[in-house]
Structure formats: structure tokens, C-alpha cells
Design a protein around this nucleic acid. Structure first.
Length: 889
DNA sequence: TGGCGGCGGGG
DNA sequence: GTGTACGCCGCCA
């Protein structure tokens, strides 16, 4: 039988552990493979002064077996392995105790590896990978699916994935007041969406009162409903359980309700009760044999998805173009629940839609694809592959260390952690090099961006950087080695290839092969898997460096993390020098692994050609590394380190494609109103595409004028913030909290505002700013006036000022000529006339008339503006509008 | 610049 | 379950 490994756990039978592997056949059947006769173990490296017989006595006393084995120590190069004890126990859960007392004899290794992983690693099994089983069917009474007792298990190499069953769920509850509390507030409704269908239905809504609405099942009460919910779980038997924010809300809530109502909680494929453990903020839910997938978790952590908010409404809208149904908070749910048939119908539809959206996000956006591959590469079970980065590397390293006869250190305990943190505090981990940018607008020629491909992984590989190759003490007898810019030494690969370098090599080579394969693959399903796989390989390679500097990691050695970044800084500095020594261009900015080269080339094709030429030139001179042409900016504006925007051009099959690209300059932020975001975008657009700073400044003045004239619609001025706790609990004054208090005092039916999301605008008045937050509807109804000064000062100008300052337009110039000028000056006690000395000049590309904004390439002979006689000042790129050649796009 | 405090998603 | 772990943003000094 061939199975794809979906999940695993262990359980004790007659005091002895058995491993249970939950696998899927090619046809989608679920099989639980039972493995007997596996014992927990770990390694002990005894102290020099300890005699074997000292330990032997203790081991015997505690009914433990042992073997003397030879293993390499993980930190620091040594030519020979050392003698260690492999301590073999019986009950995995007893290992921590054993480890605690045995530590007085030496250093334990791998004493904290989860038992299921111990087995998997020892047998070459990886999550979502295939394996073959020979065995006999058995009945256990504890596992709900077909069960086989294994005689022989062998890992297999297969690309395909078994068909899985998905179930999305969403609950509703009607709290009496405020936030729902699982101890008291019942679940009123559960929507379930199935893929593929369950009994011909794609969805069903369970309702905790009698109803005859279509595709619904009504029950006498919550208890009956929950009983049926579990029955459906067992009957449909999903592999994947999903739902929006289910890990943090729905599942823990359901589990608590089952507990309160004294109902069984075995929602998985075995007898074990499902359980939720609280981490720092998020929880983790374990359903044996199934995988809980929360689209919220995945989307929020996806670096490609940048949204203002990550609620289901925003996410569904932007990723699926789909709307959530209208519902104005939990108080409305309670109202509808108490209402008539139409109300119930609306609630049911609302409930059903949320499950549908979660399911669609998961399936249509292929959210799991990459994680399947991460599981296969790292060896983690799918459930764990959905978690953080560190576990992936830990698992991968465990596999690779074992293959080479190395042992893995345990995770740091509290004392070790304190030590590491102190060490870091003192010596510090020096990061990447970020060059001080030449701020301002660069518009006279294209700015070329060249990136080192996978810089840190390449460095690890090129210089054999690894704890296992690290020469702690270098002497005349030391084997051939590299000496790093951090003054650390690593033996050369011909002496021994490090484990990290080997992992990186495999990841990089496999990725290249997978990408090549993906290009020629015609089958769409296979192509999708291959693409997910290359992304997973890239993720793994790029985050390996991070693991070497991860305080909670098993191979944390600050010297190694420091070595990698030191090589990185050296590399980028070298690249800059090579470029500037050999080409007539300047590197105006560089960050970690990318360089920005300013040229005088206006033609896009010529600029790209030059970029490729430079990248080849540099690559030839830096062995083991590749500097690659990335993209070009026709115009490029940089404010500070890490904050820039550019008119980006990328050549595609059907010609040049352009867009405005921004890094660090946020045009969307949840505490900004729409007007700010819109104005920011428009300003960058004018500056970069038209190259016309004066036009951009005028645009801002117009917006300010509209604002003062009250012509800006309220919707664009609305700021949204949520009330998260009882109003009395807030200390300090915040606008939305003050508004909530007002709403409560105006409307006695409103009790608590917890959980409400408030929209507000700031109105004119003499009171403190926070006290002047108002409900937009109330403002409309009462015809109140908004506080334009607030919007200009606090919303519009701060982000805009930074942009304009970098192109040499000061705040005073920005608002010059608007009524606001005098208004603000009066407020700030400033002189109303712009003072030229205060004008910020950072980049000098043009000379502009202060009065009419006409611009010149050189200072005029008279020293004043020939058109209007106005005073001239230096600016950057202001005259661009006149000499920018139209491009092919 | 750095440290502190609050908040996220869900109903 | 042989585990014990956030990370960003705004405010204020």
C-alpha cells in the first residue's frame, strides 16, 4: 500500500508507545498505520571525569537501556566522532525527567525531539511525503479509520498529492452583552461547507432552534446541534478543517462548549479529545489525524499580501473580489436571532457565506500548495509546516545531522536563554549593510537595480559556513580553511562539507531543477505543484540564515550569524567598488543584497542592457555568487534608508510594463483616512510619472483648499478604530474611546461598546482633540464642521512632508499661497513668509522660480526668474516635466 | 533613536 | 505532549 503522510501521533498501549501514521491513498482513502516496538531515546555525552560504571548503576536502577555509540559533536570542527551513550527509555513522556537527573553526568543531545518525529526522522519519513507499507489490517477500537499494523515501511519519492476532503466551518453566538464568553454564551449556529460535497450538498447550516429553511438543519437546542456537529465531522471525515480565524475563535469556542455541556470532544480520527493550547497570543488546535488550516494565519503572514486590515471582509474583497454579507456587529446578530423568519434567514445566509469565503480562499488561492512542499522538504507534518520558520529548519537539520552521524543539541533552557540574550545584548549581532542613500529625486536617467540572488545561502555554501566546520582554535596544524571578515575560520569543503552548506546546495540545485521542469510542464496541476515547490525551496534557503541567529534555536552560535552578515557586508561593498571603478555610474543606494545604480541612460532597452552587462561583470569577479539584473526605475525617489518609490519598468513578453513601486513609504495605514492615502498616491504619481514636483505641490495645495472649503466628502476623512475593552479600562485619552463614551451617554440602550468598530471624524472646537471625535452620521445630521487644521496637520502633511522634503520642497512652500498658510503660521507662531534659508535642499538637479515654479537647468544670468522676476532656488528634478522623453510604454 | 504599551482576527 | 514561542505600530521621552 502506498500512502501520503498527513499526520502522526503516538499513544501508549500497555505502557508501551505505538506510533500512528495517518496516511492517504492515491484514491483518497484514509489509513492509519500502527508501528509497534519503537522506543524513545536520546544521547548523552558524558563529562570527562565520569566513569561509565557511575552512570550504569543509575540507568539500571531506572530501568533504562543504553548503547555506547560514536557520534560527531555539532558545534565546532573535529576530525573524529566521540563516544556517547544512547539512552533508551520506554515511555516518551518520562524522558524530560530522565534528562533532568542524567544531566549531571554530561550533556544530553536530542532529548527534546517529539516522539513522532523521532520515529519519522529515523525512518526517513517526511510530512506529506509518500511511503509504502506492508502489514496486516487490525481493529483497535480507538482509531476511527481503517487501520493497518505495519511490518515494513519505506519512504517513496512521488510528486503528486492524494485527493483530500476539506470542511470549512463558522459559528455564530449571540452574547447577552459585549464579547461572547464560551462559559456562558451558547453557539446558535454552525455553518459547514464541504469540498467535495457531503451527501450531495456543498453546504449545510446547523441551527440551534427548529427551522425549515433550505439547506439547514434545526435542533431543539445547542446540545443537540453540537452532537450532530460531531456526527457530521465523523461521517464526512475531513482531512482539512478550515475557517476564518478558527484557531483563535471558532474551534476553541466549540471545544469549550463541548466541555461545558459535557459532550465528547474527539473531533479527530482517534479517541483523543481535541485540544487547544494557548501560546503567547495565538492558539494551536490539535485534531488527531486532521489538519487545521486558518486562512487568516496564512494570509497575514504572506509577504506578498499587504493589506490595511486582515479581517474577512477586506481579505475576501481583495483576494476574491467577493463581499461578506452585511452585519453591523454582534449586537445585530443577537437582534436577528431574537427576530422573525426573515431575520433568521439573513443570519443563516451570513453564517453560510463566511464558511464559503474561507473555503474559497483556501482552494482558489491555493493557500496550502506551498505548505505541502515545505512539509516534504523540511520533514514536518503539514500541521507544523503551517507554523513558524524555526521548526522547519530544526526538522530538516535533524534529518541531515543524523545522515552524517552528528547529534543535534537540545533547545536552550531558561538559563541558557538568559545567557544568550545577555551575550547578544553585550556583543550584539551586526546586521546587513545599508548604505546612506543619496536622497531626492533621480530623474535624469534610469536607476538600475541589481540583486545578489540568495545572498546569504550562497555565502553559507561558498565559504562552507556551519557549526560543524567551525574551527574554534586555529593553529599551524589546522586543516585548510577560510578566514572570514569576522575573523572566524571554517574548514574547506574538501576537508568536510558543512551540513548547512549541504542543505543550501540541495535547496538551490533542486530549485533550479524544479523551475526548469516547471517551464516545460504542460499539465497544469503538476505545474502548480512545481511552482509551489520552488517557492518553498526558496523560502527554506533564505530563512536558514535567520535560524543560525535565532535565540531559541538549537545551533545558535553568534559568531556564525555574525560571520554570515560580515561576508554579506563585504560582498555588497565589493560590488559597489567594482561597479564604480569600472563603469561611469554611481551606486546611490544599497541594502543587504541589492544595489541601486544611477545612470544617465534614458532609453529603457539600453538601460536594461547596461544593467545586464554590469551584473555579468560583477558576477565574474565574485566566485560562488551571482549579481543579477532585477529591474529598472525610470525615475526614482528616495527619502531615507528603506523608504523609496520609483517608476518601475519590467520587460515582459509583450513589451515593457510599468508601475509605481513603493518600499517603506506607506500609502495605506489603518490609522490614516482615505484622503491621506489617495493624496499620497497621487503625489507620488505626479512626481514620478510626470516628473513634475511643482504640479504635485499644487495638487496638495488644492487638496488643502478643498479641505478648508469643506468640499472633501466625510467618507474620505473617516478613521476607523475598534473598541477592544470596557471603556473604563482605558487610561489616556483616545479619540475613538471618547466617542464611544459619548455614544453611550447619548443612547442609554447601548451598554458596552466592546467589540464595536467605530468610525469617526474630528470636528472643529476648543476641546482637546480626542474629545472632538464624532460619528460621521451625527456630523452630517447636525451639520457640524470638520477640523480641517487637524486633517492638514495630523493626517495629510506628516507623510507628504517627508516626500517633498526629499525633493527639496519645504513645508512652507508646500502650503504657500493657501489660506492654511496664515492659519497654520498663526497657530504655530511662525512668520507667514517662507524663509529661503529654511528650505531643505538635498539634491540639486534643477533651479526653480519660487514664485511661478518655472524651472531651469542652469542659474539664469540675471539671478532672478526671467519670466516673473521671482527668486530662484535649487531643487531636484523639478524641471523634469519639460525634458523627460516620452517612453515606449 | 529607543523603550513601552496596545492590539490583532473572531461574535 | 520528550516543546512553552509574536510582531508591528504609535506614542512619548
Amino acid at each position: 500500500m502506498q500512502l501520503q503522510l498527513l499526520d502522526a501521533d503516538y499513544t501508549l498501549v500497555n505502557g508501551r508507545p505505538i506510533v500512528r501514521l495517518f496516511g492517504k491513498t492515491e484514491k483518497g482513502e484514509t489509513v492509519c498505520v500502527i508501528v509497534e516496538n519503537v522506543r524513545p531515546y536520546f544521547f548523552l555525552h558524558p563529562r570527562e571525569d565520569i566513569e561509565l560504571k557511575d552512570i550504569e548503576y543509575e540507568l539500571e536502577k531506572n530501568n533504562l537501556d543504553y548503547e555506547v555509540v560514536e557520534r560527531f559533536l555539532p558545534i565546532g570542527w573535529s576530525p573524529k566522532p566521540v563516544k556517547m551513550l544512547k539512552i533508551i527509555g520506554r515511555d516518551p513522556s518520562k524522558i524530560p525527567e530522565i534528562r533532568a537527573w542524567i544531566s549531571r553526568f554530561g550533556t544530553p543531545y536530542e532529548a527534546d525531539v517529539l516522539f513522532k518525529y523521532r520515529y519519522m526522522v529515523d525512518n526517513g519519513l517526511r510530512g506529506m511525503a509518500w511511503f509504502s507499507v506492508e502489514g496486516k489490517p487490525v481493529q483497535t477500537g480507538t482509531v476511527k479509520c481503517k487501520t493497518v499494523c505495519a511490518d515494513r515501511i519505506k519512504p517513496l519519492e512521488m510528486l503528486s498529492n492524494a485527493p483530500l476532503r476539506y470542511m470549512a466551518l463558522d459559528i455564530e453566538c449571540a452574547p447577552q452583552s459585549g464579547l461572547p464568553n464560551a462559559d456562558n454564551d451558547p453557539i446558535i449556529m454552525i455553518s459547514l461547507v464541504f469540498w467535495p460535497d457531503w451527501k450531495g450538498k456543498s453546504s449545510i447550516v446547523l441551527v440551534s432552534k427548529h427551522t425549515s429553511l433550505p439547506d439547514c438543519i434545526g435542533f431543539a437546542d445547542e446540545t443537540e446541534m453540537l452532537k450532530r456537529f460531531k456526527d457530521i465531522m465523523d461521517d464526512y471525515d475531513p482531512d482539512i478543517v478550515t475557517g476564518y480565524n478558527i484557531t483563535n475563535f471558532d474551534l476553541p469556542y466549540i471545544l469549550r462548549r463541548l466541555e461545558v455541556l459535557d459532550l465528547p470532544r474527539d473531533l479527530g480520527r482517534a479517541e483523543k479529545a481535541a485540544w487547544a493550547r494557548k501560546l503567547s497570543m495565538t492558539q494551536a488546535i490539535t485534531l488527531t489525524g486532521r489538519v487545521v488550516v486558518d486562512p487568516y494565519d496564512i494570509i497575514r503572514r504572506d509577504p506578498w499580501v499587504k493589506l490595511k486590515r486582515y479581517d474577512l471582509r477586506t481579505v475576501a474583497k481583495s483576494l476574491l473580489g467577493e463581499e461578506k454579507l452585511e452585519m453591523s456587529g454582534s449586537s445585530e446578530i443577537t437582534t436577528l436571532w431574537k427576530g422573525g423568519l426573515e431575520d433568521l434567514k439573513r443570519l443563516v445566509n451570513y453564517n453560510r457565506r463566511d464558511s464559503e469565503l474561507a473555503m474559497r480562499l483556501l482552494l482558489e488561492k491555493g493557500l496550502l500548495d506551498k505548505f505541502f512542499e515545505i512539509a516534504k522538504i523540511s520533514g514536518l507534518l503539514l500541521q507544523d509546516a503551517l507554523g513558524g520558520q524555526s521548526m522547519r529548519h530544526e526538522c530538516k537539520l535533524l534529518h541531515e545531522f543524523r545522515k552524517r552521524n552528528f547529534v543535534m543539541p537540545c533547545k536552550p533552557d531558561g538559563a541558557e536563554l538568559t545567557k544568550r540574550k545577555a551575550e547578544r545584548e553585550e556583543a550584539g549581532l551586526k546586521g546587513a549593510l545599508v548604505l546612506e542613500p543619496e536622497t531626492g529625486l533621480h530623474a535624469s536617467g534610469c536607476t538600475i537595480v541589481l540583486d545578489f540572488t540568495s545572498l546569504y545561502p550562497s555565502l553559507i555554501k561558498a565559504f562552507n559556513i556551519c557549526p560543524t566546520t567551525w574551527l574554534k582554535n586555529v593553529g599551524p596544524d589546522s586543516p585548510p580553511h577560510f578566514t572570514s571578515p569576522f575573523n572566524t575560520c571554517f574548514v574547506k569543503p574538501e576537508v568536510r562539507e558543512g551540513v548547512l552548506p549541504a542543505i543550501v546546495r540541495e535547496l538551490i540545485n533542486t530549485r533550479a531543477a524544479v523551475r526548469a521542469q516547471a517551464r516545460t510542464e504542460v499539465d497544469n496541476e503538476k505545474k502548480r505543484i512545481l511552482n509551489a515547490k520552488q517557492l518553498a525551496l526558496k523560502d527554506m534557503a533564505n530563512s536558514l540564515y535567520g535560524y543560525t541567529g535565532f535565540v531559541h534555536g538549537r545551533i545558535y552560535v553568534m559568531d556564525i550569524a555574525n560571520t554570515i552578515t560580515a561576508y554579506g557586508r563585504d560582498t555588497i561593498t565589493n560590488a559597489k567598488k567594482i561597479i564604480e571603478d569600472n563603469f561611469p555610474y554611481k551606486v546611490i543606494y544599497a541594502d543587504t543584497d541589492s544595489t541601486f545604480i544611477k545612470t544617465d541612460i534614458v532609453d529603457l532597452d539600453a538601460a536594461q542592457e547596461m544593467g545586464i552587462k554590469i551584473s555579468r561583470f560583477v558576477t565574474e569577479r565574485l566566485p560562488g555568487l551571482e549579481l543579477k539584473y532585477e529591474k529598472l526605475f525610470r525615475t526614482f525617489l528616495i527619502e531615507t534608508k528603506k523608504r523609496y518609490a520609483g517608476w518601475c519598468f519590467e520587460k515582459e513578453k509583450d513589451g515593457w510594463k510599468d508601475k509605481i513601486e513603493m518600499k517603506g513609504i506607506e500609502t495605506v495605514r489603518r490609522d490614516w483616512c482615505a484622503l491621506t492615502s489617495e493624496t499620497m498616491n497621487k503625489v507620488l504619481d505626479i512626481v514620478l510619472r510626470d516628473g513634475d514636483v511643482k504640479k504635485a505641490a499644487k495638487f496638495v495645495r488644492d487638496v488643502i483648499a478643498d479641505l478648508i472649503a469643506g468640499k472633501v466628502p466625510l467618507e474620505k476623512l473617516t478613521i476607523v478604530k475598534g473598541i477592544t475593552k470596557d471603556l473604563e479600562e482605558y487610561d489616556g485619552v483616545q479619540p475613538h474611546v471618547e466617542l464611544a463614551k459619548k455614544i453611550v451617554s447619548r443612547d442609554p440602550t447601548k451598554q458596552r461598546m466592546v467589540g464595536e468598530r467605530l468610525e469617526y471624524v474630528i470636528v472643529k472646537g476648543n476641546a482637546l482633540l480626542s474629545k472632538r471625535a464624532e460619528d460621521p452620521e451625527f456630523v452630517k445630521a447636525k451639520g457640524m464642521e470638520i477640523d480641517s487644521t487637524y486633517y492638514i496637520e495630523n493626517q495629510l502633511l506628516p507623510p507628504l512632508e517627508r516626500i517633498f522634503e526629499s525633493v527639496g520642497v519645504s513645508r512652507t512652500e508646500l502650503i504657500h499661497g493657501t489660506k492654511q498658510m496664515s492659519l497654520l503660521s498663526a497657530l504655530n507662531g511662525q512668520k507667514p513668509t517662507p524663509s529661503p534659508e529654511k528650505t531643505v535642499l538635498k539634491s540639486y538637479e534643477a533651479i526653480v522660480c519660487r514664485k511661478c515654479y518655472w524651472s531651469f537647468r542652469r542659474p539664469t544670468l540675471t539671478g532672478v526668474c526671467p519670466t516673473c522676476g521671482g527668486q530662484l532656488f535649487f531643487s531636484s528634478g523639478t524641471s523634469l516635466g519639460k525634458f523627460l522623453e516620452p517612453t515606449k510604454s
